[in-house]
Amino acid sequence: MRGSYFLVIRLDGDKEIRTKGRTFRLRAGHYVYVGSAMNSLEKRVARHFKREKRLHWHIDFLLKEAELLRAYLIPSDERLEERLSLEVARRGEPVPGFGAGDVRVKTNLYRFEEEPDETLTEILENLGLNWKIVKSEADVKDMRW
């Protein structure tokens, strides 16, 4: 399955997240990461829930230090990552330079003071998109559309 996804992440305290080439200073709060997987959406999202993995993308380094609460899987043959990121940017505080290496937005990570689920469902409904919420790697593997 192809598509995009939101990861809803909680960072309990202020932290410096060091990736291979950068350091990001993040404040405590909720974060939404916008991603895409145009080959295997389920495998990509399941990987994000794994605690033990090779650290490759910026999000891997953040998830090592934070809690992944849930993911929204958004199946689509259309590349929606940039559009979704622009929508989340209107409501969240952007973290410049985080992710987004293959799209024309400045970031794919946004901070929210409160739980962002109401905002995310509003975005998805306004765009007329289908989605499912999963809370674990097992949920992804057991998911039925």
Rank of each mutant, 00 (worst) to 15 (best):
F24D: 02
V34G: 05
L129I: 08
Y31E: 02
L55K: 13
F61V: 06
I123K: 03
S40F: 04
S85I: 10
S85N: 11
Y110T: 08
Y72P: 00
D14V: 07
W145R: 08
L68G: 06
F61C: 07
K64W: 10
E122G: 13
E16H: 12
R2K: 15
L55T: 03
D142M: 13
G35Y: 11
S40L: 01
N39D: 12
K106V: 13
K43T: 08
E81N: 08
V140D: 00
M143E: 02
F61N: 03
S40G: 08
W57D: 01
R2D: 00
G3T: 04
G35L: 04
R22D: 11
G29H: 03
R22A: 12
R91A: 09
R91F: 14
K43W: 04
E113H: 13
D139P: 01
M38D: 00
F49L: 02
L73F: 04
A37S: 15
F112C: 12
T107A: 13
I74N: 09
V103Q: 02
E125Y: 08
K106P: 15
D77N: 15
G29R: 09
E113S: 12
R25K: 11
F24K: 00
Y110K: 06
Y33E: 06
L84V: 09
W131K: 01
K43V: 10
L124H: 06
E82M: 07
I59Q: 01
R44H: 01
P96N: 03
E81Q: 14
R83E: 15
V8G: 01
R111A: 07
S136E: 07
R111H: 02
A66M: 05
Y31G: 01
L63G: 05
A28Y: 01
H58V: 14
L69P: 00
S85M: 10
A46G: 01
F24L: 03
L26H: 04
V134R: 00
